[in-house]
Design a protein around this nucleic acid. Structure first.
Ligand SMILES: [Mn+2]
Ligand SMILES: [Mn+2]
Ligand SMILES: [Mn+2]
Ligand SMILES: [Mn+2]
Lengths: 225, 225
DNA sequence: CATATTGTTTAGTGTCAGCTAAATTTCTAG
DNA sequence: CTAGAAATTTAGCTGACACTAAACAATATG
């Protein structure tokens, strides 16, 4: 039941690419995400599928999904990752664009005890610095109701729910623009050429490239106070 | 100039086995310390010696010592290890017998930034939970003047300088007996059968096995106040 | 529906770091 | 000073996990 760093990375990638619907993930998508070649992916998937207990269910030419065991480990890694990010940010004073890279490495190597102690001193937190939900110990999910900002209707109030943590340059830019989780806004313009949002309680609209907007996920403003 | 976890472990072991005098370390000693077989050691030493830049100087049948480059990395690992131990103890509330195992893993994977931030929140500490000196950044040593308790003369005042961190059971026992760094004592009895010390400001002497005593290093009581 | 394109797998290699068995060198004791 | 013991190295393998080149399947398109 021990998993190597490489196996960990595959499991987490399958979880993330499968999304809330747990769809089948293709060899190509995995190769792309992990920065390896497709034959390496095929080889690893065959291994993970034929292990006992198997970590993935794999059908030749038809993609993979995680088994219950695979899911357990993948969610544990997500919990590690997000706890570590928050810890680096809140305790070690990392900026929010610095945490991801370090968490990506350390998530594989911390013990159960480390996980528990970090959760304890952070007060069993539920959200990481980028707005992502921290799964409770031994649990999956949750998946929050959020949609890409670029798919949000014009003028409908929204709150930034989370931002992608995978691009440090984009994160610095988003912070500079004040576009962080919890910020309320409306979409003012959405064309192939440009994208603009009006941040609630701020005068002029904020213009940003579609690429940058693509890193943002939003949700409906919660009406109940 | 990147080192794998395996290479790291060899370098640190050579540093530690070489001691303050930087003596040559044998293949056998390394195999023993690292829990691998001697042919594996020979193979690794040949590789480390023929790299450019070389990390060790190696003569067939005559043992190995670190080059300047090897030393630099080895001391960096020692700094990582001891900083992490102190951090786990002081911030994450690990007990002193729990820190070593976790530090042994994490020392290889933390970034420069992590090292610096941890040192900062600990206030640039100089000693780890077991009394070992934390090397300053980019520096070697220091080696403190300390000798094994079992080699200390009877009735001569001494202070516990450090204790070995490699045996969790022994550490718990030492803590129970109040034998921790900074504690002043004298040796009352030292025979093959048993060992007893009198802890300053405590009535009855403490009896302990020679094995347990073997984990303790002491130094002369500092006269200057 | 046949063929071109795309996606995936198979076959064969390489590197890292471990292992056992056997050969060789060094050390030690008589 | 030499035989036997101990230490070390060499030779040859193994398991992970990458890679390239080539074969094969699935799919899209004219
Ligand atoms: Mn992240
Ligand atoms: Mn990872
Ligand atoms: Mn230690
Ligand atoms: Mn180590």
């Amino acid at each position: 039941m021990e998993t190597s760093e490489a196996v960990d990375d595959y499991l987490k990638a399958i979880l993330e690419l499968g999304g809330a619907e747990d769809s089948r993930v293709t060899t190509n998508a995995l190769a792309e995400r992990l920065g390896v070649r497709t034959p390496s992916v095929t080889g690893m998937l065959q291994k993970l599928a034929s292990q006992h207990p198997a970590l993935v269910r794999y059908e030749r030419y038809r993609g993979v999904r995680l088994t219950a065991n695979g899911k357990r480990r993948a969610w544990e890694l997500v919990r590690h990752h997000r706890l570590i990010e928050l810890f680096l940010h809140d305790v070690l004073k990392y900026s929010w664009d610095e945490v991801h890279e370090e968490a990506e490495r350390l998530e594989h190597f911390i013990s159960e005890r480390f996980e528990d102690r970090v959760a304890a001193i952070l007060g069993d937190p539920e959200v990481d610095p980028h707005g992502h939900a921290i799964p409770p110990k031994h649990e999956a999910g949750p998946y929050r109701a959020e949609v890409p900002l670029v798919a949000w209707p014009l003028h409908k109030p929204a709150v930034i729910s989370s931002v992608s943590d995978r691009n440090a340059v984009a994160l610095r830019e988003l912070e500079r623009l004040g576009l962080m989780p919890g910020v309320a806004l409306t979409v003012e313009q959405s064309t192939p050429a440009a994208f603009a949002v009006r941040v609630q309680a701020r005068s002029s609209p904020v213009r940003l490239g579609n690429d940058l907007a693509g890193y943002i996920q939003v949700a409906a403003t919660d009406r109940r106070p």
